[in-house]
Amino acid sequence: MPDNNGQKGEDALPRLLGWLEQDPENTALLSDAIEAAIASGELDAAERLGERYAQIETPPPAIRNLFGIIAIQQGKHEKAAERFQQLIQDGHNNPDIRFNLAWSYAVLNKGDDALEMINTETAEQLPQAAALRVRLMHSAGHFDKAMEEAKMLADIHPEDPGLMAAISVLALDVEDIDLARKAAAKAETIPDAITTLGTLALADSDPSSALEHFNTALEQQPENPRAWLGRGMAEMVRGNNSKAASDIDKGAEIFGDHLGSWIAAGWAYFVQGDYQTSRARFETAMAVDPTFAESQGSLAVINVVEGNMEEAVKLCETALRLDRQCFSAALAKSLIERSKGNEAAADRIVKIAMNTPIDANGRTMGEALMSMNTGIKNAPKS
């Protein structure tokens, strides 16, 4: 999509409209006026000018592309997709139009269609297409392939902040911390990169710096789910559990089907003693994917706390079948042992659970739970 220089459009549009009053069928003036209207955010005016153009003559591909951009900026993404599709069907298959169609598909949650439009060749030609391709591959779960292409595209567009921001997020998820840090440093004004820097600060045990980054990211992009989750985790480390739960909840809601977010939200409420809401968040994760061990194990913990021991045992066994290293299942098992009066076995299981590394920096769940002010016995100091 083209840059939206509003001031330039505001200055130019009235002048162009005045000239069009004198020469109403001048398509060159109409073309300039459409661009000026888009730049100034006068989208309805841009649409009307486009209709005037079409009444005079068949618009060329560049003007038809502008019609699609108008639809995007109006939030009419289905309409935009139709316009770009027609252009491509008519043989105008250039990178800019492919990117615009891919953008429309991405907004419509048609990730596979978007990826098909942004092939490697298109990504090599346009840095904005490279950034979108990396994000789409990452979102689709193609981590290895996404990283392979990200490194190749970074060599082609080494200074593009959008691409670097996308790479920083991908690198975090594949636990390439060095690459995440380097990529984010090249895109430190982009919300995704700012969020990456916040996540790194949190991993470096600097929650104050992390909060600054997450707040900055959210000021620029209020619907950034990673920033909400990160801010929630930073608040949790600082002991502000109520704020933490609210922020993590917000991130989970925006993500929608991101299992880890719902699990994190459930634990955020758990540490406050709000077991009803905690259960609801774990059940949401279970509904998304019942084969995810932490969903089963987390619900097992809730059932132990609520005294539903038979159901707790069943869920715990299922979780451990799915993943022998499942933290929440180990914690549930320890609580079940405690309920039988078998303190020695329970303490041993808790120690194993608390000392299991949970991230790329070797931080243990015990350290995380201590930071949450849970006071669980045998949790090592962070």
Rank of each mutant, 00 (worst) to 15 (best):
P2C: 02
G6Q: 14
K8M: 02
K8L: 12
K8I: 09
D11R: 15
L13W: 09
L16S: 11
N26I: 12
S31V: 07
D32S: 13
A39R: 10
L49M: 01
E57Y: 04
P61M: 06
A62P: 01
L66C: 00
I69K: 03
I69Q: 07
I69P: 00
I70H: 01
I70K: 01
I70W: 01
Q74L: 03
G75R: 11
A81K: 07
R83Q: 15
F84K: 04
Q85H: 13
Q85E: 13
L87P: 12
D90M: 11
H92L: 01
D96V: 15
A106P: 09
V107F: 05
D112S: 09
A114G: 02
L115N: 05
L126A: 05
L126G: 04
A129R: 04
A130Q: 12
L132N: 03
R133V: 05
R133A: 14
R135D: 13
E148G: 01
E149K: 09
A150S: 14
I156D: 04
H157R: 06
P158G: 10
I167F: 04
L172C: 11
L172W: 01
D178N: 11
K186A: 12
A187S: 12
E188Q: 15
L200M: 10
D206E: 13
F214M: 06
F214P: 02
F214L: 07
Q220W: 01
Q221T: 06
R226N: 15
L229H: 05
N240M: 11
S242A: 15
K243D: 14
A245K: 10
I248V: 14
K250W: 07
S261C: 09
Q272N: 12
Q276E: 14
Q276A: 14
V288W: 05
D289E: 08
D289V: 08
D289L: 02
S295V: 08
G297D: 00
G297W: 02
V301G: 04
V305T: 13
E306K: 10
E310P: 04
A312H: 06
L315T: 06
C316Y: 04
A319C: 06
L322S: 01
L322H: 11
R324E: 06
A330G: 13
L331R: 03
S334T: 09
R338M: 13
R338I: 13
S339F: 01
G341Q: 02
A344F: 07
V350F: 14
M354G: 00
N355F: 01
T356A: 02
P357Q: 03
T364H: 07
M365V: 14
M365L: 10
G366P: 04
K381M: 09
S382D: 14
